[in-house]
Design a protein around this nucleic acid. Structure first.
Lengths: 226, 226, 226, 226
DNA sequence: GATGAATGAGTGTTCATTCAT
DNA sequence: TATGAATGAACACTCATTCAT
């Protein structure tokens, strides 16, 4: 080819951008879906925010619905594997382990945009049943498994009471889900709810989770070593 | 004509229907909003389900948005007064009181369609800022107050630990919100989540709430009388 | 009849009102049609302003269109007969006669609601062809005839130039129509057009009509008596 | 293929259409607005007549109201500049100048569809207050200024009587407005009004405007040179 | 006669999706 | 590959008209 080869950085930038297109679109879509919900998000807006035309969006995603599904799939944290390993190697009391779990969850998920995704997923579950099942399979189930393993450890090591495992999981899950939901609904709208501090919330929830409400003879937050 | 005369004119079919219209429409709207979400619910469908024409709906509600607001108001607001009185007169331990609160909440709200509206309200919060503030003011705030009063009683009577009240409220609220959310999202889509029993869930949550996870010297769920 | 005869004024009032219904409706309709035009006037509003229900309106007028036609027909001033007689007996110069015509037209038509009717008729002419023809026959034609007779008198008495009668009529008509139109369009919207005085306008138009723009040797507004 | 290649890409059918769209839509809208009035004109019909779909119309005009405004702006505004210059350079008597003004007005506005828009604008003035003010500012005011300048010239050169300028303007304006109104209302509906010749009308109006009705010593249409 | 609840065809407007360039 | 002009099916909402009471 006698024409000039793509030496110019502009050209390479373009190439890079080209490959990055779907990612940029997913980013933009994630933001908007989280911010406004599925129906209120316009593909036009997604494309514009991603810096491409509406037509281009449909080059990569055959429909708005597929775009949404892709966003959910893409933004799902597949980090349960490493997380699981991390916890497997955890040294120390299970109470500390639980506390650590909550803290790292907040750092890695709760405080990031991924939490918005979860809220969105839960909100739209009814309209995307297959997606919901996918989500259940890929996120919920592994997540619950992780929680279960922590609880199991606590029980086996004689630190935790022997609770009904099937439902105890929710005692751990609920505060997390609640926090994600709250942040993206009431918390984002009602101004005087702004002096709600997520990190304090988490500390209180863990404390509550471990110690319960009732006065106990030995009031130490962490139980005495057996 | 010897046949029964229309004794009470108010009981004529037309008249009765007229008075019932708003209620029937709210019923239909409640069903559909809960089932499909705000955007996916068409006013046509609401009207049809209520057995009237589209025009009639607009006779009673000036817009879809107002219809939604009316459903929210109707389906959630207003029972806090009697509830509050009920609890004020409660005899017995605060643990029992808490258990009672959860149970009646489930009977009156959690297990009804109102829970679907709560889920929807939280999902759509961002799209209806004024409604969200109304909801915060009329529902959330009174609800939290109720919870607070129970916790306060427990602490004052020496039954509960002295916890950070501002955040302890969420330890009670979160399981409820979670349950409503769960029922209407994952729970409604994932078939094998069907062996999830809300009543067991509630019992477990209350138990957990009171006793915490950690082993305690006296393992009785309700503490021995001091 | 043992029941009380309708002696009460309330009853007679009602009866009177009943007979007056169509008139009240026409009044209200005239006001609203003039104010907002045909399309922007809602039958609901007409009925409400007339103090009856929408259904009642349709008892007297089979459709909005017929109501409009009735309004036009009703509000037409059938006073051309007496007017014609009045002018036939006029003593004095035809210039004075013209001036008198303008003045009385303003008093009887131009300054009254009837002028709004004319504006309305002209605005909606295209959408009500049959009505327009009726209007032409009942209003325009007699009106032009009246103007023609004045001009004719002026010419025959040697006061007016011999002008093309078919078109000279419009020189008299145009200022009147213009005034009616202006009042109800620009004049009603543009605030700074408020220092427009219709009576001065009329005086100027008559003066102009008689004397023209060009300088003339004898500059007296009214010509010297022959 | 030996057939002519698309030499200029801009001339491709699609491209050319694109650029022509707003114009075609304005044309169609102008026709329909003039023919049926604002309310009776359906955007569907406008689009169809312009050969596009309804959606396309909203690509170029955000609402029916804006379309209407655009038609008004397009069809009437903007020729005052050149007109003003033309008249400033006019040589000859002011009577001739006035006659010339009427003639060119008829050629450029009166006889075109723009006159229909003027009529519509005046009819709908009350329903579009902001548009009416715009119209007043952009059309009426400059137009009156033009007329005023002609009259001023006549007076200053000693050709015209010293008339009340504020109202004399209407003596020139009224015949024009009347003609536009007449053409599109009575004139378009009443068949026997068809032997009304606008050009004769204009000649007569100018003659009348200059000479008035009254007999004058020197009956020459144009005054003798001073 | 009078009501006003009910209707449903019709209207402006939106927006995901297509496709010629 | 990327564009953006074009589409048309849908939707919320209106309002003249009907009719049981």
């Amino acid at each position: 080819m006698p024409t000039s080869p793509p030496l110019s950085p502009a050209s390479s930038r373009r190439e890079r951008r080209k490959e990055a297109r779907p990612g940029e679109l997913l980013e933009a879509a994630l933001d908007l879906f989280v911010e406004k919900g599925y129906a209120a998000t316009k593909v036009d807006e997604v494309a514009t925010r991603a810096g491409v035309s509406k037509g281009t969006l449909f080059l990569y995603f055959p429909s708005k619905e597929e775009l949404f599904k892709a966003v959910v799939r893409e933004s799902i944290v597949g980090r349960f594997g490493e997380w699981s390993q991390e916890l497997a190697q955890f040294q120390g009391s299970t109470a500390d382990m639980l506390r650590y779990s909550f803290t790292t969850w907040w750092e890695r998920i709760g405080s990031t945009r991924a939490s918005g995704m979860t809220k969105l997923m839960l909100s739209e579950a009814g309209n995307f049943p297959e997606l919901t099942q996918f989500y259940q399979r890929e996120v919920i189930e592994p997540g619950q498994q992780l929680i279960r393993s922590v609880l199991q450890r606590g029980i086996e090591r004689g630190e935790f009471r022997t609770v009904n495992m099937d439902y105890a999981v929710y005692a751990v899950l609920a505060p997390m889900i609640f926090l994600m939901l709250w942040k993206h609904s009431i918390g984002a709208c009602v101004p005087d709810a702004q002096n709600f501090d997520p990190e304090v919330y988490i500390q209180c929830q863990v404390d509550q989770l471990l110690n319960g409400l009732l006065i106990r003879p030995s009031p130490s937050p962490t139980p005495p070593p057996v």
